[in-house]
Amino acid sequence: MQSQDKLRIAILSAFAIALHAAERLIPSPIPWLRFGLANIVVLLSIILYGFRVGITITLIRILVGSIFVGTFLGPGFLLSLSGGIISTTAMYLGSILLGNLLSPFGLSLLGSFFHNLAQLTVAYVLFIKRIDAVMYLAPLILFLGIITGSINGIATIALLKKIREDEG
């Protein structure tokens, strides 16, 4: 791995962890609703620096974030890990397969959808084991995911524009 990449990963992971920690302070009407603001950083990294940087940031964010919050290796950690890996992979595949057809807005929606899908699947297989309970929760979770995914996607577009303006 290039030293330039290492530096990028270090700085961007710090941003992701900071956003992840800060969003816990945002009051939310639904206790388990997370905005996934760290995803802005991950999506940006995938677009600018590729999959390896993106997935490394995701893994560092989940690992360090869970140690900070105290959920390391708990049920929440497994949900977070599965969601993070799947959504990062989905956003990367989306960006290479449909790069010109999807903007970061669409990629973020894709990421949020697969994040929720992975979490619901893991929750079902490991913890809940009740398909009807999952079916009740799924529409609401997916709907909220569309909202948070849209917000993150629009934020990513704005950031990308700013970065590209600054570069020239």
Binding site: L102, I146, I157
Partner: peptide, 15 residues
């Protein structure tokens, strides 16, 4: 303006 048609197709589909 930066969003694409497929973005919105995906958006509406998920909705």
């Amino acid at each position: 303006k930066e969003t694409t048609l497929l973005d919105w197709v995906l958006f509406v589909f998920l909705l």
